[in-house]
Each structure stands twice: as C-alpha cells, then as structure tokens.
C-alpha cells in the first residue's frame, strides 16, 4: 500500500490520472488530508464510493502514531516514531507561553558525522519521505497547537532536499496546510548547492550550524568543513537579502574552552560583517563518552553580551527537556539498542 500523505498536488494529480479518476479528485484528496485532516480514504465523502474503492485498493492515507513519548517536567515532549520496520526518528514538542515549536527530523540517522552529535553515531539509515516528515506534526496530540516548525531534529535536511522541499510545499501551499513561511525554519550545516536552491525556491527562514568561526576548529567538530568551508557558505549567503521576514540565524553550541573566548567573538563579528542575521547560543547537552563539555552559564552570558555589544543580535536558547534525554538522537539510539537486543 502506498501512502497518500505527503504527496504534493502534482503527485496526487498523477495518481488520480493513472487510476482514471477525474483530475479535480486530486484537489479533493489534498483538501481532505491537509485541511480536514482525514485519516482514511473512507472519510473523503465527496469522492464517489466507487472512486474511494479504486483508491483504497492501492493507497492509504498512511499516518503513523508515535511509538513512545517522554514528557519533561518543563512540558517538553519527545516523540519517538517508527519508520519502516526498524528505523526510529524523534520529534520534540516545545511549548512556551506564546508559541509551541515542533522540531522535526528529516532523515533517520545522518551521514554528516558531527563530533558533538548523538545521531551521528547511528550512522545513516535512510531519508524520510515528505509524508514521514509531516507525519511528525500531524500525528502528535498537540498537532493543532503547534505554531512553529523547525527542521533541526535528526539528519541534515539539505541531504534530503527533494523530500524536505516537498514537505515545505505542502506546509505552505493554499491547497496544502496553508502555513506562513515565517513560521518555518530549516537548519543546515552548510551544503552550499542546496542552500542556493532553498533560498531561491522558498521563503522560509534559514539557520546555519556554525559552532566556530575558525577553519581548524570547525573541521574537528564538523567534517563538512572539509567539503564546504564556512567562509564559502557565508560568502554565498552574502549574495542574498535577509530580513525579519526571512530570517537568517546561526546556531552556535557553546563548548567549554573550545569556542567560547573573546577571540571567537572577534572572528565571528568579522565573518558575519554585512549580513543581517542573529546568533543563537546553545548549551551543549552531553552525550555519552564525549570529549566535549558545555561552557559555564557565566561564560555564555559574557559571550552573548560581547556579541550584542558588537551589534549582533544574540539570544541564548533555553535548555528544554534536560530530564528526557534532551540531546537529539539519544532516545532513538536507545530504541535501536533495545530492538537489537530483542
């Protein structure tokens, strides 16, 4: 059975054409799935019974409930989804007073091998289809409360560009979920060709995992630096215009004694000069046997203040879900290990 959820309007049109159904059926199916949140073909009552039967012979809506949820004392929830028969992905629901953000995964595992990342240790298991990305939103109980989506969970979204772009098309189209692009952020470690396509083809926000402005240090934290040096990424970004409507932000995990000195502030200011952007400082959530440690809070505040004094809008991300394996990839690694033991 093939899932319809996550198909774009043009894909739905191809499907209905192939089944010999009138082409407006595609709009009806999109309307049922993305506006009325139908969970089965049977619910699509403005399709004739015969046409529903034709579809149901090969297709299902294809939503999947989470396998497990862990809830933090601070209200953050981590959802674990089974993808295929043996892969796991995580989504994190983060409620705040004025908004609720969902952090979604784009791949199960990841190929990029960042030193600080638990998902990297799983290796790569597969790309998520657009439907599997959107299912993380659609199938959690808080679905209607989510105000913002960030593609910052497991995987490198731009290593799965095609499916990520399809999911964005569905999220932001009138025939889809009708979300404003300003509520969506995709985060990347800096795959330059995909960044260009994303900027040209969408108007969603962009976040870049920066973590240090120095070539040598970034290379040791993120092997991608050998392929796409951050200086080249920034040079590319300087060709485009960013503003509050389309925000450019840099993620910066604070590692004790490694990337948290005034020397780093100075180089960051130099590197980002001329870009309208903000920096988001993040405490490092420890992963087992890591040589890295988070910077003390005092130094994080100092770092923020130094950057702010230099005119770079800098925030510190609140640490959420510390008591429920906050580091992305921990929950799914545990689930994989449990499955392996069975």
């Amino acid at each position: 059975m093939v899932s319809l959820y996550g198909k774009t309007l043009s894909e739905l049109k191809s499907i209905v054409d192939a089944e010999g159904l009138p082409s407006f059926t595609a709009n009806q199916i999109a309307d049922w799935m993305y506006h009325h949140h139908a969970e089965s073909i049977d619910e699509m009552t403005n399709l004739s019974k015969k046409n529903r039967e034709i579809l149901a012979a090969k297709y299902i809506v294809g939503l999947t409930k989470p396998e497990r949820v862990s809830e933090s004392a601070d209200g953050t929830k981590k959802y674990l989804f089974l993808v295929g028969s043996n892969r796991y992905i995580e989504a994190a629901y983060i409620p705040e007073s004025d908004r609720a953000t969902l952090c979604v995964s784009s791949q199960s595992g990841c190929k990029m091998g960042c030193l600080f990342c638990m998902t990297a240790r799983q290796g790569f298991q597969g790309n998520l289809a657009a439907g599997e990305i959107l299912n993380q939103l659609r199938s959690i109980p808080e679905f209607t409360r989510v105000t913002n989506i960030v593609y910052m969970g497991m995987g490198e979204p731009f290593d799965n560009l095609e499916n990520v772009m399809k999911s964005l098309e569905i999220l932001t189209s009138k025939w889809g979920m009708g979300w404003s692009a300003r509520r969506i952020t995709v985060s990347t470690i800096g795959l330059i060709p995909a960044i260009k396509q994303y900027i040209v083809q969408t108007s969603c926000h962009l976040a870049i995992s920066l973590h240090t402005p120095f070539d040598e240090e970034r290379r040791m934290l993120m092997p991608i630096q050998n392929v796409y040096p951050i200086a080249d990424v920034i040079a590319e970004l300087k060709k485009y215009r960013f503003s509050d409507h389309r925000r450019l932000s840099f993620e910066y995990i604070m590692f004790d004694g490694l990337n948290d000195t005034p020397r780093h502030v100075k180089e960051l200011v130099r590197l980002l000069n001329g870009l309208t952007c903000r920096i988001n400082l993040i405490r490092f959530h420890p992963i087992p046997n890591s040589p890295l440690h988070t910077s003390p809070d005092e130094r994080i505040f100092q770092f923020r203040d130094l950057l702010t004094a230099k005119g770079i809008f800098t925030t510190i991300r609140a640490s959420r879900g510390q008591d429920i394996q906050a580091a992305c990839g921990l929950l799914s690694t545990k689930a994989l290990q449990e499955k392996g033991r069975k």
Partner: peptide, 19 residues
Amino acid sequence: DILISRGVPISSINSEIYF
C-alpha cells in the same frame, strides 16, 4: 571515537566523510 578514547586529541583528527 576509538582514537579519542585512546588519548588522541580531537585537534589531531581530521576526517573526510563520503556522504
């Protein structure tokens, strides 16, 4: 991970991944 656990500093490890 093995090199780090055996005492090689992270600054002495440089990697290229065939992603």
